[in-house]
């Protein structure tokens, strides 16, 4: 992915510099990961709230160190 053959007169040196479609792809994938994070968080919240209201453990198995006991 190197955009340069030599450091003489180099300007933009990042991976994919000058290759706009590739750079756009990097941005789109990174942004999709960001959206994925938000979706994961919403699902985690919904699950955690439902479990708490149902008086059941949020996570299966024994509590790890520092984890609160099942509500």
């Amino acid at each position: 992915m190197s955009p340069i053959d030599s450091w003489d007169g180099a300007t933009a040196v990042f991976t994919g510099a000058g290759d706009v479609p590739l750079d756009v792809l990097f941005v789109v994938v990174a942004f999709a990961m960001f959206i994925g994070f938000l979706v994961t968080m919403v699902r985690h919240e919904n699950h955690a709230y439902e479990q708490m209201i149902a008086h059941t453990a949020v996570e299966k198995g024994p509590a790890v160190e520092g984890e609160p006991s099942a509500y």
């Binding site: 919240e45 949020v58 520092g66 609160p68």
Partner: peptide, 8 residues
């Protein structure tokens, strides 16, 4: 801290 955060 008792629901969405798995630590205390």
């Amino acid at each position: 801290d008792l629901s969405e955060v798995p630590a205390t």
